[in-house]
């Protein structure tokens, strides 16, 4: 992990300008390596936050009494932060794994530079919701095949075909545990976002 940003920020009052904040979303299916990816390059240990879903049900029990049940379901997601020169803070937000939580993605994606969709070639179908989501909203995204155990088991061309990815979507190998590899993935996203400006 890199060193903490040196921002004595708030101590001497209003004169300090807040860092400029940018973010990149790390998406993909359950256990594909999102948290590992974020942790490989974040300045801070990945933090975990959640949105709460409160589900209420009212019923009648056997004795005729009213029962009230409140179920808290929480959708966890984690994120990291990287301080870049020029007072830039880059946040990496991992999406909740299961696609039943797609409704939360707008919050994560709003204002993002782009996204990395992580893929485990053993479970290709798990990335379909993410690919569909970003394609549908014209959000720049790359697909990164996470090489579990450092082994690429499939040719990228085959993965591209299996996913039905258009030629415009960059497809790379990565290793979620390796900072050098995750750094390249982030660079690819930013480069894509720049190309899209043209």
């Amino acid at each position: 992990m890199a060193s903490q940003p040196s921002n004595a920020a708030v101590t001497d009052g209003a004169a300090h300008v807040a860092p400029t904040v940018v973010k990149i979303v790390i998406a993909g299916g359950f256990a594909v390596g999102k948290t590992t990816f974020i942790g490989s390059i974040s300045d801070i240990d990945p933090l975990n936050t959640e949105a709460a879903m409160t589900e209420h049900s009212v019923g009648v029990d056997d004795a005729g009494g009213i029962t009230e049940r409140k179920t808290h379901t929480t959708v966890a997601m984690d994120f990291g932060r990287i301080a870049l020169p020029g007072s830039l803070w880059l946040y990496l937000f991992g999406t909740p794994g299961q696609d039943r939580f797609l409704f939360m993605w707008d919050d994560l994606v709003r204002g993002a530079i782009g996204a990395v969709v992580l893929v485990d070639t053993e479970r290709l179908d798990q990335c379909f919701p993410a690919v569909d989501y970003f394609e549908g909203r014209s959000i720049p995204f790359i697909v990164a095949v996470n090489c579990f155990d450092g082994v690429a088991r499939h040719q990228l061309d085959d993965v591209r075909e299996a996913l039905g990815l258009s030629a415009g979507v960059p497809l790379i190998y990565t290793d979620a545990r390796e900072r050098a590899a995750t750094k390249q993935a982030l660079i690819a996203v930013v480069q894509l976002a720049m190309e899209r400006l043209k």
């Binding site: 890199a2 940018v22 390059i41 530079i113 400006l197």
Partner: peptide, 17 residues
Amino acid sequence: GITRSLLESVLDGIAAL
């Protein structure tokens, strides 16, 4: 909100990590 100069700064910053 995502301008070219912002992206250039981010790119340079990540590349220098």
